[in-house]
Design a protein around this nucleic acid. Sequence first.
DNA 1: TATTGTTATACTCTATAACTATA
DNA 2: TATAGTTATAGAGTATAACAATA
Lengths: 145, 145
Amino acid sequence: MGDQVERERALGLVLELVVLLEQDMSKRLEQDHLSSGRTAVLWVIRERGPITQRELAEARNVTPRNITGLVDGLETAGLVRRTPHPTDRRATLVELTAAGTAVVERLEQEQREFTDLLFDGMPEAQFESLTQGLDEIVRRIKGAL
Amino acid sequence: MGDQVERERALGLVLELVVLLEQDMSKRLEQDHLSSGRTAVLWVIRERGPITQRELAEARNVTPRNITGLVDGLETAGLVRRTPHPTDRRATLVELTAAGTAVVERLEQEQREFTDLLFDGMPEAQFESLTQGLDEIVRRIKGAL
DNA sequence: TATTGTTATACTCTATAACTATA
DNA sequence: TATAGTTATAGAGTATAACAATA
């Protein structure tokens, strides 16, 4: 389990990883004039298809008001479109436009490239124990929440 | 190095870890009426002692204007204090108050407890290979920036 | 002329509360 | 009466630009 100094170094690595990932992501997204909030909405629509704003709010665990703003931005950017809900006239369905689909597909491609960066050429044993270790600490954090 | 499915799962673990850490941290900080930006400033002052706002801006890699706002908030909360720079009348030195020092020390204590949560009772071999794996991917990301 | 920190302005993400249209 | 989404308002983090005081 490591002595105190080793543990602190290990935690430092984890925190550094968090910072690096945030920087890397926001840098990539900036190039597409995207932001974290809007991108997260895009991912949900990608996974679940046309979806109401209420459902988006629940999926993202934010307020409906917040979704209004994010969808406004995505709509202005031409990435999503609001359409009337077929049976409930109060609700709005949000769906990807062709441009939005293209953007999400490029993000998916970049994610695959990022996976390659992280793991290409890594020895099988190291990859195995890394994922097992990550699994373990993720489980521990979840258990503590 | 794992097949494509295993790799995607591994990246998923890393991203999940990022999200969990952000949630955990912002939850802890909220209890102290702190926020990520202000806390980051607090850490820099803790490490480097009384420091000008210009230096804070460089350390945090944000604009001087941003630092003005963060220090305003910390000062209102009673955690830091602005004092005149001894030789340069343009500059301001920002330093921790007793209350600010107490808050930072508690954060440090919480960080030690978090380290325990992550690593207590983990077999030496697993701890070793986890830190080596983290080291490797941190190095790879840095190399790609 | 260059630097330190500020005011002015703006954008993104987030929240609560009040309100409209619809169920 | 309850729900979907909006307007109104607010606060945090971030940015650029213009400006005052000082170096």
